[in-house]
Design a protein around this nucleic acid. Structure first.
Lengths: 226, 226
DNA sequence: TGCGAAGGTTAAGGTTGGGTTAATATTTTT
DNA sequence: AAAAATATTAACCCAACCTTAACCTTCGCA
């Protein structure tokens, strides 16, 4: 079953699209602005992303360029108003794979979605560091052949850390990207890290998760010691 | 030729800065509030952005966070009043690259602008001096293959010194940039420098850290000649 | 030669960031 | 609705870290 993301600030349009998709048996996540769209994209594996060009907080082109720079090559369909098209079309080397001028025909959109998803299906998306392999599509984490059991939050944290490896991720970044600005008691992160480490311990991989005091955490092979 | 943006609500200060910049052959756009600043930023490519912390409509921190969320990584220098500094300094991971306490010396501002513009939009990921390599992203310092173990403050000091190399950094600058105005006993800096030297000694690199008597410290290869 | 200023060294607390655990609350699944 | 899985909170611990204070060294200069 297809799993899409729609990033669109017009709620009426969005709900129409989503309803139509559900009739076609297509799952569709939804974000009404660029920033939460970006968060969803980095934390989930979509087959196709549908982006409105004009978005609050972060416009579609910027968002698209942004995710491409992160190495995410999920197919992107850009939605744009007819009059905005002319001067924007050249910008499509930002990395969009297709575009559609509003107002568009729903069937047309579905066709393009299916085409794009077919084009890149079977493409493996995973992160591997040390013996640890995180599969972004099915959200599984293996060490050799052993499956780790992680909570949703634990998985998000691990995904963030692994996709930034070997760089450090600050506590603030982590909190912001996982909880938004409605951050809970700062202890929560500690506890999640602790749970994560316990799971990693089960497969003797917990030394991959390094604490950078005064900053945050990093996921990488080498040991910061002496 | 450098092309900057200054966002500052105090018009007298702003015009002073702009005049001084023009003498230095630096172009500088100007906005007197956060919103028009944001508009200019999204529409133009600046080498450096100078932001006042307290702005009408949208304060500097918010603006900074906002543009970072849009994926704009133009270097930002934050201007702040001395008394506002202490409680704000921790918020600087909003994405500012540097800050300056008002009132500041114009030459100081020019130096920082030039430094930041040189290091290509914060894309500089590591600093290397002698055999020492400081990686800004993963917060590690290596000499050859040996990892140095530094405290958070030690790392900050080293970062400041290395990023200003081969220039000297004054004690006052060091203290101001690391502790804000809530500076501790002046001895603290001495002790931190001492710890730093001990760590550098472990890899025979302590002669990189030079004392400039009556001024501060410098991090560079050659000896400061008499 | 002796004094003061600037910097360096050392060791003793005090503080705190991060870790741990367990109880409680929330959400999801059944 | 009960049970199970997750998430959050609170209380506590500890080692690393920071600061302080007292003392030491060096150097310029009266």
């Amino acid at each position: 079953m297809l799993n899409l993301l729609l990033v669109e600030d017009n709620i009426d349009l969005a709900s129409g699209v989503i309803d139509y998709f559900s009739l076609e048996n297509i799952r569709c996540d939804y974000a009404n602005n660029g920033v939460s769209g970006l968060n969803l994209i980095t934390e989930n594996a979509y087959q196709v992303i549908i982006l409105d060009l004009g978005l609050p907080q972060m416009d579609g082109l910027t968002l698209c360029r942004n995710i491409r720079e992160q190495g995410i090559d999920t197919p992107v369909i850009m939605l744009t108003a007819r009059d905005a098209l002319a001067d924007k079309i050249k910008g499509f080397d930002a990395g969009a794979d297709d575009y559609l001028v509003k107002p568009f025909d729903m069937d047309e959109l579905v066709v393009r979605v299916r085409t794009l998803s077919r084009r890149r299906s079977g493409q493996m998306k995973s992160l591997t560091i040390g013996k640890l392999k995180l599969n972004l599509l099915d959200k599984t984490v293996y060490c050799d052949d052993q499956l780790l059991k992680l909570s949703p939050t634990g998985l998000k944290i691990l995904t963030l850390l692994m996709s930034n490896s070997p760089n450090a991720v600050s506590r603030n970044t982590l909190i912001e990207r996982i909880w938004g600005d409605a951050s809970p008691d700062s202890n929560s992160l500690k506890v999640h890290i602790h749970h994560l480490r316990k799971q990693l311990d089960l497969v003797q991989q917990s030394e991959l998760l390094h604490t950078i005091k005064g900053h945050g955490f990093a996921f990488r092979l080498d040991q910061p010691h002496e």
